[in-house]
Design a protein around this nucleic acid. Sequence first.
DNA 1: CTGAAAGCGCTTACAG
DNA 2: CTGAAAGCGCTTACAG
Lengths: 358, 358
Amino acid sequence: MERVTLQTIADRVGVSRTTVSNAFSRPDQLKEELRQRIMEVAEELDYPGPNPAARTLRRGRAGVIGVVFTEALSYAFADSYAVGFLRGLARVAEQSGTGLHLIGWPSPGVAEEVIGDAVVDGFCLFSPEGHPLVETVLRRRLPVVTVDHPYVEGVPFVGIEDRIAAREVATHLLDLGHRRIAIVAAQPMAAQAAATRPADWLDVDLAGDHRFGAGRARLAGYHDACVKAGVSWGDVPIHRTTNDREIARRAAEHLLDLRPRPTAVIAATDEIAFGVMDVAAQRGITIPGDLSVVGFDDVPAAEPAGLTTVRQPITEKGTTAGRLLLKPSRQDPSPCVLMDHRLIIRRTTAAPGDALAT
Amino acid sequence: MERVTLQTIADRVGVSRTTVSNAFSRPDQLKEELRQRIMEVAEELDYPGPNPAARTLRRGRAGVIGVVFTEALSYAFADSYAVGFLRGLARVAEQSGTGLHLIGWPSPGVAEEVIGDAVVDGFCLFSPEGHPLVETVLRRRLPVVTVDHPYVEGVPFVGIEDRIAAREVATHLLDLGHRRIAIVAAQPMAAQAAATRPADWLDVDLAGDHRFGAGRARLAGYHDACVKAGVSWGDVPIHRTTNDREIARRAAEHLLDLRPRPTAVIAATDEIAFGVMDVAAQRGITIPGDLSVVGFDDVPAAEPAGLTTVRQPITEKGTTAGRLLLKPSRQDPSPCVLMDHRLIIRRTTAAPGDALAT
DNA sequence: CTGAAAGCGCTTACAG
DNA sequence: CTGAAAGCGCTTACAG
């Protein structure tokens, strides 16, 4: 059996292809009777409806936006922050009948091709600076909005003041009296391969603001506070890890093996903080008695866990990004939206107590 | 400036369109020198790469699968079960360079059009029986796999034995001595509009197995156990709600207002169970002292919450569905895969104590 | 209200 | 190694 197209139906009914097309796409353009007739024949021939690829090609519009992550999607779905963002984005996309095409970065090479082949009208991009996906996405010459990072001249941006927020986190611990603070930084899974200057990643002098990615911006904020409090930045142990609870445990194990043991751990995200808490629990290290832990994001699980963290409007970031992409403003086509954040102090931070003696 | 296409580049370089196409898609088909030359001109003209819609049309393959939910995506992303499933699905999709196109059902009408226009090679469908999306998806005549429900003759299926698992849940409570059991059933958001026989939804005689959707299958299981234990099914209060924690709270409020108050609540999903627990906490009803609560799914948050529930292999469902779609078996093109489940008894269920006196 | 014509941008045998 | 030709399936002014 040959493939059924508009033409097949047209031939059968004895009308032109145009009319059949109208029957599907502009029903008001023909008599109800004829339309019905056409639909019957379509049904009879088991016609699956106008081919979407052909339609998109002709119309020049897909009705879909691409969402690009720098991690494998399987990691993104394990991260409440990403999921919360998607919830917001989905809300505005759905309202306008726009689909979501999710693209992750399982391994170098694959995603680049997927991005090049994505039938979409625009992209929403999460990505650290220098990541190859940035170039790939930009090259499509479609509307783009970046979230958290990178900030690209002329491209709409949504984020928060990561450096300032991170400074507040570290200051909170320092004010409590902590001096042996360790940091677990969030680094994209494959940053080694991706970063333009991997060796410089920890060089906070370069990490001035959101231009350098939230991961580094936060690091810079921790740095600022330490320096100001007279804690030598060079002595602060820093371990890089991916934003994944399980993987973060390894970093935590390393840090909690240090002697003298840190009295506080700053995690660059809540997900990582949970990993740290997992390891502490395993080893019988009490929180906040023996160890203070701070996260970042305030994902839903942070509250029940009593985690001290920075709240940022995750879902609102998603809706904002969606709106920027779907209905760009004429006056300000590439705005830089910086949203509010707030340090939420809960039960995982306290003055260093017994831990000092360890 | 006119739009740049393969032809623009061909004209500029002085070769045919074919050769330019080869430069992008089959680099081994031409001399490196010529290829380089072509790439330079492409760069110069700011060519965004071969148009994906045109490519897809010509090739007849999109490299994307559609994932269809019966709820708004913003709800799906609020549900750990759905997210866990997506994690599994994403894992196998990514490995083969396949994209994920997510489609929700924000309101009647919208999704139907999105499905008709989705440039995909197949669909993964979650849906209760009689839902309009089922027909819409099937009509595309693409490969489909359904998850949990509905079971459609000739279409690959992935699920668990919901009725049997639900029976175990209810039996657990009945064995503990509960007799005043209330049920919060999960019903798709817009079932009223969607179901073919909304009035029959609660008619368990019809809910024989997974053919009728997990929601009803579970209800049927609760029914079986009650009847067997001599609890009159007609006296069991049932409240329908959506699989959303916040929305479920309303159902819980209603049920906990009943006098005499139920000593146990069976929630059709963990998400709903959390809603019940929220309300109980608000009212100072202790669990399991005053009230036993059981969920279903064993989402990640269930363990820390101590929730008694049914564990099912959420992520594996995703990987299985993905594999069925991406590499269908020749011998058995439409298998019905029923995965294992297990009742996990934690700290939210106990014998009815003080509550009996209420 | 209906149809003939042009064209969306690409890929793929096939011939040279 | 390169090019001419055909065609993927549709929509959209435009003319009647």
